[in-house]
Every structure is written in structure tokens, then in C-alpha cells.
């Protein structure tokens, strides 16, 4: 499956990813060759096969449940320590609503 430049731009928009024109040209070529290989999957018969959504092994169904007990959350200050912009205990981002 080849991808058009228009499709690449659409996917980049879905992914919130800004790409330069050079990057888009390269994506058209690279994604095309990878998707071509991926199309080989159509040849394998998977009739009646359940999709494997996670690794399964012999275990009880409740094995991954934990007791419902309180645990101290990350302190506000620690959570904000890496924020590019913060104030009054919150993350700050560019304005989304005009007054």
C-alpha cells in the first residue's frame, strides 16, 4: 500500500505531529515500503483465530487484582517540578478560550 502526500499530512494531523516538507517526502517513501511489507499479512489464513490482545499464561482470573488500600499520591510540588510552565498548583498552557 502506497501512501499519498495528502494521506501522510492527514495522519500527521491525527498524531499532533508537525512535519517539515522534507520529512513528509521521506515519510511517503518510508511508510510506503513498510506498509507494502505489512500487506503480506493478507496472505495468512486467520479464520477462526481469536486476536491476542495480551500475553496469556496459566493463572487465576483474579491474579492481577490488588487490595483496595489508600496510597499517598505524588505531592503537587513534585508533580509540577518538570512542568514547562506552572502556577498556583496547576500546569499552565496557552490560552484556549478568548475572553
Amino acid at each position: 500500500m502506497k501512501l499519498s502526500e495528502e494521506q501522510v499530512r492527514y495522519v500527521a494531523k491525527l498524531a499532533n505531529l508537525n512535519l517539515t516538507q522534507a520529512e513528509i517526502d521521506r515519510m511517503v517513501q518510508d511508510l510506503g515500503s513498510v506498509l507494502e511489507h505489512m500487506d503480506s499479512l493478507a496472505a495468512i489464513d486467520t479464520e477462526g483465530v481469536e486476536p491476542m490482545t495480551q500475553v496469556l499464561y496459566q493463572t487465576e482470573e483474579t491474579a492481577t487484582l490488588r487490595p483496595d488500600v489508600e496510597r499517598a499520591p505524588l505531592a503537587n510540588e513534585a508533580a509540577l517540578a518538570n512542568a514547562p510552565a506552572a502556577g498556583s498548583g496547576y500546569f499552565k498552557v496557552p490560552k484556549v478560550i478568548e475572553r
Binding site: V11, N16, L17, N18, L19, E23, M27, D30
Partner: peptide
């Protein structure tokens, strides 16, 4: 969002985000 991710990620990571999104 768009600019941060465009500036911050390298070529292989961008390629995989694009493939995965597609």
C-alpha cells in the same frame, strides 16, 4: 502540541508514531 512533538522527536520515533497512527 504539534510544534513540541515536531521539534522534540527524532526521525525513527516520528516514523513509528505515524505508522501506528495509520
Amino acid at each position: 502540541y504539534h510544534n513540541t512533538r515536531g521539534e522534540g522527536f527524532g526521525p525513527e520515533v516520528k516514523r513509528r508514531i505515524m505508522l501506528g497512527t495509520y
